[in-house]
C-alpha cells in the first residue's frame, strides 16, 4: 500500500498552494513597485503578523495557554534565549492542564 491516487493528488495540490504562497508574494512585489506608503505599511507587518498569530491562539487556548504564554514570555525576557521558553512555557501549560483536569 503506497498511496491512493486521490490522496496523492490532494498532497500535490497542497504542495502547490504552499509554494504558491511562499514564492507568490515575493514574485508579485518584484513586478509591482510598492509605493512609500505600502513600504511603511509593510514595516509594521512582521510584528503585527506574530501578534495576529499569538493573540487568538493564547486567548482561545484557555487557562493553560494563558499561564504557558506568560511563563514563556518571562523566560524569554530573563534568558534572551529561544530554547528555554519552549520548555518552561510548555511545562507550565502542561502543569496547568493537569491541575485543571
Amino acid at each position: 500500500m503506497h498511496g491512493d491516487p486521490l490522496n496523492l493528488l490532494a498532497i500535490l495540490v497542497m504542495a502547490l498552494g504552499a509554494y504558491g504562497c511562499r514564492a507568490g508574494g515575493y514574485w508579485l512585489f518584484n513586478r509591482v513597485n510598492p509605493s512609500p506608503a505600502v513600504r511603511a505599511l509593510l514595516a509594521y507587518v512582521p510584528g503585527c503578523l506574530f501578534v495576529s498569530y499569538v493573540t487568538p491562539a493564547v486567548i482561545n487556548g484557555g487557562p493553560k495557554a494563558w499561564v504557558g504564554a506568560a511563563v514563556a514570555a518571562v523566560t524569554m525576557k530573563l534568558t534572551g534565549s529561544l530554547v528555554w521558553p519552549i520548555f518552561t512555557g510548555t511545562a507550565a501549560a502542561w502543569l496547568t492542564w493537569l491541575l485543571m483536569s
Binding site: A57, V58, G68, A69, A72, M76, P85, I86, G89, T90
Partner: peptide
Amino acid sequence: FAGLTVFIALL
C-alpha cells in the same frame, strides 16, 4: 503548545 511558545519568544 510548544509551537506557540516559540512564536511568543520571537515576538
